[in-house]
C-alpha cells in the first residue's frame, strides 16, 4: 500500500474514482430509497387505517437505525449461506447501495409523512371535491408538500454519503472496487496517512455540501 503518497505523486485518478463511486453508491441509494420512501410516507400520512399511529412511531424510531445493523442485515442476507447468497453481490457496490437504501427509507418516509400531514386540510378536501381519485389526490398532495419532500431526499442523501459502517461491512473497502470516501478515510487514518485522510475528508465535505448547494440552487430557481 502506498496510499499516503498518491496525492503527493499526483496519481489523482484514485481520488476521483473513489469520489465517483461514493456519489454513485449514495446517489443510487438515495434515489432507490426515495422511490420507496416517498410513496410509503405519503400512504402512511394520508390513509386512515388501523395501526397507523404505531407504524408512524416505528418509522420515526428508525431514524436512529444504526448503519452497522443495516450492514449486518444485508451481509447476512447476501452471504454465501444466506437466503439470497446465490446472487453473489456481497462486496460489490450493489450490496452497498442496498444497505444504504435501508438507511435512507425511514428518513425519507418519515419526513414525507410529516410534510403531507401538514398540507392544509382545505387543500386536501378541495382536491377530492374537484374529483380526484385516490391516486390523483395523493400525487397532488405530494406536489403541495414538495419542499418538504425534497428536504427529505436531501437529508437521506446526507445520511448515505456520510455513513461508513454499512459501506465497510458489505463493501469491504476493496481498492478500485468498493472503496468510497468514508471507508478510504478510515483506512488511511488507521495506516497513519493522516494528511491523506484529511485531504479525503475535505473532498467528502465538498461533495456532500456541493450536492446540497446544487439542490438548493435548483430549488430556488424552481427547477425542482
Amino acid at each position: 500500500m502506498q496510499g499516503g503518497h498518491r496525492l503527493v505523486d499526483g496519481v489523482t485518478y484514485d481520488v476521483v474514482q473513489v469520489t465517483l463511486l461514493s456519489l454513485y453508491v449514495s446517489g443510487s441509494a438515495t434515489i432507490l430509497g426515495s422511490l420507496i420512501g416517498i410513496p410509503l410516507g405519503a400512504a402512511i400520512g394520508l390513509k386512515e387505517f388501523g395501526g397507523k399511529g404505531l407504524l408512524k412511531t416505528i418509522t420515526y424510531t428508525m431514524y436512529g437505525f444504526p448503519p452497522v445493523i443495516s450492514g449486518l442485515f444485508i451481509y447476512y442476507v447476501f452471504s454465501r449461506a444466506g437466503p439470497l447468497g446465490d446472487f453473489g453481490i456481497l462486496f460489490t457496490p450493489t450490496a452497498m447501495i442496498l444497505a444504504q437504501t435501508l438507511l435512507v427509507i425511514p428518513l425519507v418516509a418519515g419526513i414525507t409523512i410529516t410534510s403531507v400531514t401538514e398540507v392544509d386540510r382545505n387543500i386536501k378536501n378541495t382536491v377530492r371535491s374537484l374529483g380526484a381519485n385516490d391516486r390523483q389526490a395523493t400525487f397532488t398532495v405530494i406536489k403541495e408538500a414538495w419542499v418538504g419532500v425534497i428536504t427529505a431526499v436531501m437529508i437521506g442523501f446526507g445520511r448515505a454519503i456520510a455513513e461508513v459502517g454499512a459501506a465497510y461491512m458489505v463493501g469491504g473497502n476493496i481498492d478500485g472496487k468498493t472503496r468510497v470516501l468514508t471507508t478510504a478515510i478510515m483506512l488511511e487514518t488507521r495506516m497513519g496517512h493522516f494528511e491523506y485522510a484529511v485531504g479525503l475528508g475535505v473532498v467528502l465535505l465538498i461533495v456532500a455540501c456541493g450536492v446540497f448547494l446544487f439542490m438548493r440552487w435548483l430549488q430556488e430557481r424552481e427547477l425542482l
Partner: peptide, 9 residues
C-alpha cells in the same frame, strides 16, 4: 364544493 376558507394550490 367551494370551501369557506379558500384553498389555493
Amino acid at each position: 364544493l367551494v370551501l369557506q376558507k379558500p384553498a389555493a394550490m
